[in-house]
């Protein structure tokens, strides 16, 4: 029962390209949405379950991407080795940062993570010798998985969807584990959790590292899929978009975060037709959702649907 939603998601992800073969929206937008789902589900562990905020998550995404880009183009690392290096460096960075940074609360934590994100971004722009500067790095080789080259949008779609499902599955299991319960206690009351004998600093560090790993993994895939990285993909507005995905979908729900990621990706893609009005509509929609559905789209809509359903049942 716990995994019903997961199977439904897997079914949709698998059926879409079969129902609409060769459709741009499925493959290209699907890849973007899938990557965002991985990022949002990871960040949701931190924001939704542990109650911590991060306005600098794009930095970990970027570290994964740049690790893959730099190591494969400059040092001819095989893609999977570069990916592992990206995971290790992002994980270590998160681990080192976790204790001092997660001591902070609320807006101070928001500021510190935001500052961290900006520092990493400045390095991407300025350390031209390593990162290629503002124009970034091109010529990132194809991802080859055990002799199978991921060289078309269709193949990428399947790789990203498989990773996305893995990420969702991991998140679901993590939430129901001992760590997950400890995290929820931290969110309720950190002091209270400590009184119950939970090592809150340890629990927060663990979840910070895990969400950084999710982001770095997505970053590596992103670098190979685009064949190109530049600092623009990892700036403050991306970090903010990630938080919006988590909150928009509904905090403390893995499916909510996934839903928020998909919704925001489609929104960006859909609003381009409004050109100069895009910003106005985007801002108004964000405000409206948060004011009228403070628990997020996913929770709000599914409650609405449930209420509608009972209403229909009663009439009959």
């Amino acid at each position: 029962m716990r995994l019903t939603g997961f199977y439904a998601l897997a079914l949709v992800a698998g059926l879409l390209p079969v129902l609409f073969p060769g459709n741009y929206f499925i493959t290209v937008v699907g890849i973007a949405a899938g990557l965002n789902v991985i990022l949002a589900v990871g960040l949701n562990l931190l924001i939704g379950y542990a109650g911590q905020i991060s306005l600098g998550h794009a930095a970990f995404f970027g570290m994964g991407a740049y690790a893959s880009a730099i190591l494969t183009t400059r040092y001819a690392f095989p893609p999977l080795l570069a990916l592992s290096a990206g995971l290790i460096s992002a994980g270590l960075m998160a681990w080192g940062l976790a204790r001092p940074i997660l001591r902070l609360h609320g807006h101070y934590l928001a500021m510190a993570t935001l500052g961290f994100g900006i520092i990493i971004h400045v390095i991407m722009v300025q350390a031209t010798g390593w990162t290629g500067g503002p124009d970034g790095l091109t010529g990132i080789p194809l991802l080859v998985l055990f002799g199978w080259a991921v060289d078309s949008d269709q193949r990428w779609y399947f790789v990203i969807m498989a990773t996305m499902l893995l990420a969702v599955w991991l998140a679901l299991n993590l939430v129901d584990s001992r760590i997950g319960r400890a995290l929820r206690a931290v969110r309720g009351s950190e002091f209270g959790a400590r009184m119950m004998g939970i090592d809150t600093a340890r629990a927060k560090t663990q979840v910070f590292v895990v969400s950084a790993l999710f982001a770095a993994f997505a970053g590596s895939l992103f670098a190979h899929q685009q064949g190109f990285v530049s600092p623009d993909s990892f700036n403050l507005s991306i970090s903010i978009d990630l938080v919006i995905m988590v909150v928009l979908g509904g905090m403390a729900s893995t499916f909510g975060a996934a839903f928020g990621a998909i919704a925001l990706t489609l929104l960006h893609e859909g609003l381009v037709v409004f050109e100069d009005y895009e910003m106005l509509i985007h801002g108004a929609l964000l405000m409206a959702v948060m004011i009228f559905l403070p628990q997020g789209l996913f929770v709000g809509l599914s409650q609405g649907a449930r209420r509608g359903w009972t209403l229909v049942c009663r009439r009959q």
Binding site: V243, E278, H282, M287, I291
Partner: peptide, 21 residues
């Protein structure tokens, strides 16, 4: 806290959109 952050970010984007028009 996060919800109010998103609301004011939405307001910021909205005001930018107004200024753009």
């Amino acid at each position: 806290v996060v919800s109010t952050i998103i609301i004011t970010i939405g307001a910021a984007i909205f005001l930018r959109g107004v200024a753009l028009l």
